[in-house]
Design a protein around this nucleic acid. Structure first.
Lengths: 224, 224
DNA sequence: ACCTGAACACCGTTCAAGT
DNA sequence: ACCTGAACACCGTTCAAGT
C-alpha cells in the first residue's frame, strides 16, 4: 500500500510500525522502502541517514506519552505519566534503549521534558528537587520497562513451560536460591513481573514526598 | 598481538576490550578476528555465532560484579553490589541493554542472581519480598546507568559548552521550563548527574525497609 | 524537487577445503 | 581438531542519472 506522497511523517510512522512488528533489527532502509512501495534511496531525500530516521521514530514515541498537567497534584501527574511512558515503551520495546541516547531531541521530546519540569516546579519543587525526583523516577520507569521487555516470560504460566526444559532444571538445582525463588514466586499462580511496577513507583513517590517534608534518609551515603 | 592459543575465554575477553574501545557497533566478527591475528571464520569454531559470543561477553561483565554476602547486613550488601553493578556498566556501557535480555545466562550471571537472592533470604525476606525488593533495586540501578551512559554530558562544564551552540539556545527559550532547569541545575558549578545515584538508592532502601516493618504505602495503586 | 539504479565498502554466516 | 578462503545474501550510503 504505497501512500500517495512520501513525507517524513509517513516514513517515520511506517518505520515505527515495521519496528513494532519485526523488531529493530528487521528495520532496514531497504525493508522500509519496500514496505512503502519505493526504492531505498528515496528515503534519503527526506532523512539524511538512518540515524535521523531513528531520531524521528523516538520523537514519535515521546509524542504518545500523556503529558503531566502543571496545575495538578504532582503525585497523581507523575503516576499517570509514568504509566503512560511504560505503556508507550511496551508498545515499542525497540525504543527503550534509544529514548535517552538521542542527541537531537525532537519537538515531542522537548515538550515532554518541559511539561514534567513544569509540573514539579508548579508544585513548589526547587530546581535541585526537580533534578532529584526526575532522575529517580525516570531511572525506575526506564529500568523497569527495560527488564520487562527483555524478560523471556511475563506470567508464571509462561515461565512454567520454560522451567520444564532439561538444562534449566539442572541449573535450578545447582543454584538453590534461584530454585527457591522460582518455586515460591515465579511458579505461584497469579505471578507476573508487571505487578511489581505500581507498588515500586509508590515507594519512590513516598520517598520523594518524605524528603521534601524534611525526613532525613537513614543511609550513610547522602549528600556528596 | 595474537595469543598463542585461541580459546573461548581469550576471544570473549578480546571482544569485551574491543567493544569498550570502539563501541558495540565496532565489534564485528571480522574486526575481532583481525584484532586476534586470525581469520573471521576461526571464531566460529569456538562460538556457534555472534549471539553466543555476546552471551559470553555479558557473563564476563556479571563476573566483574562484587557479590553480596549472605551473612551481612542486607542494606549494606545491596548498596555495595549496586555500586559494583554501576561501576561495571560504566566500564562496559554497551552491556547495559544486553544484561537482562540474554536468554542463555552463563555461570557468572547465575551465581550473581543466586547470591542476591541468598542475601535477602538470609536477612529474613519472604519470597515475595525478595521479588519486590529485587525488581525495584535492579530497575533503578539499570535505569540510572542507562540514563548516565546515554547522556551527552555528565558535568556542568561539559553541558555549558553544548548550551552555547545556537540551535540549543533557541530551544531553551522556546521551552522555558527546560531553560530554568538548565540554568538552575545543570549549569550550577559542581553539578553532575552521577551525584543523584546514591541518594536515590538510599530512598529506595529506606522504602523497602519501611514496607517490611509494615508501614503502608500512601498511594492508591498498591496490591493488584 | 523528487525518485531511481548501479556500485562500494561493509556485515554475519555457509561450505568445501586445507593442515 | 582447528583454521582458512571464497562465496552468498544481506547492510547503509555515494554518486550520477533520470523525470
Amino acid at each position: 500500500m504505497p501512500p500517495r506522497k512520501l513525507t517524513p511523517e509517513a516514513i517515520a510512522s511506517a518505520a515505527v510500525d515495521l519496528a513494532d512488528r519485526e523488531g529493530i533489527e528487521g528495520l532496514t532502509m531497504r525493508s522500509l522502502a519496500r514496505h512503502l512501495g519505493v526504492e531505498a534511496m528515496s528515503l534519503y531525500h527526506h532523512f539524511v541517514g538512518k540515524d535521523a530516521l531513528l531520531d524521528a521514530m523516538v520523537d514519535r514515541v515521546y509524542g504518545e506519552i500523556v503529558l503531566p498537567a502543571a496545575d495538578g497534584n504532582w503525585r497523581a501527574e507523575l503516576r499517570r505519566r509514568s504509566a503512560s511512558v511504560r505503556e508507550a515503551l511496551r508498545r515499542h520495546p525497540w525504543a527503550v534503549p534509544l529514548m535517552e541516547s538521542r542527541r537531537t531531541p525532537g519537538p515531542a521530546t522537548l515538550a515532554y521534558h518541559d511539561a514534567n519540569i513544569a509540573c514539579l516546579r508548579a508544585a513548589g519543587f526547587s530546581a535541585d528537587q526537580v533534578a532529584h525526583a526526575y532522575a529517580i523516577v525516570d531511572a525506575y520507569v526506564y529500568g523497569f520497562t527495560l527488564s520487562e521487555t527483555a524478560l523471556p516470560f511475563d506470567t508464571g504460566e509462561e515461565a512454567a513451560v520454560m522451567v520444564q526444559e532439561e538444562p534449566l532444571q539442572a541449573l535450578l538445582t545447582a543454584y538453590p536460591n534461584m530454585g527457591w525463588f522460582v518455586e515460591n514466586v515465579v511458579l505461584v499462580p497469579g505471578y507476573s513481573f508487571a505487578r511489581e511496577f505500581a507498588p515500586g513507583l509508590e515507594l519512590l513517590l513516598d520517598g520523594i514526598e518524605s524528603r521534601r517534608r524534611g525526613v532525613p534518609a537513614s543511609g550513610p551515603s547522602r549528600g556528596a
